[in-house]
């Protein structure tokens, strides 16, 4: 598969943390993660598009998460209550992405 041209940011832009389901200061209270796994089929551009439009992430953050999926095999793309990440997992499955939920801290 041809790689799309990418601009990969290492840091999320300011203000992005407010958009996510929980701020960093409360992250330790939030027990579930949504994990997206790598697969050799989905286009990199498509995965980034889904992260941008479904979660409202900036292009830089979406690309960074997509690259983490691609290079490390998985990425925690969201966290929140069990109900929240389960709803998001169904949405990811509908997009054709391979997503699972797990209790936070299981990724070691």
């Amino acid at each position: 598969m041809e790689a799309m041209s990418l601009s990969v940011a290492t840091e999320p832009s300011p203000g992005l943390r407010e958009q996510t389901t929980a701020g960093t200061d409360t992250a330790h209270l939030v027990p579930w993660n949504l994990v997206v796994w790598n697969d050799p089929v989905n286009l990199m551009s498509y995965v980034s598009y889904v992260f941008q439009t479904y979660f409202g992430y900036t292009e830089a953050k979406a690309d960074a998460l997509m690259m983490q999926v691609h290079t490390e095999g998985r990425s925690i793309v969201s966290h929140g209550s069990k109900e929240t990440v389960e709803r998001q997992a169904v949405a990811m499955h509908n997009y054709g992405l391979w997503a699972t939920v797990e209790r936070a801290g299981e990724d070691g």
Binding site: P40, V41, N42, Y46, Y49, N94, Y95, G96
Partner: peptide, 21 residues
């Protein structure tokens, strides 16, 4: 269309044995 084409590709990829890059 985006999800339809994705699902078609996922099925074809499975039939073609695409497991790795």
């Amino acid at each position: 269309w985006a999800t339809a084409l994705t699902d078609v590709r996922l099925v074809l990829a499975e039939r073609l044995g695409i497991r790795t890059e």
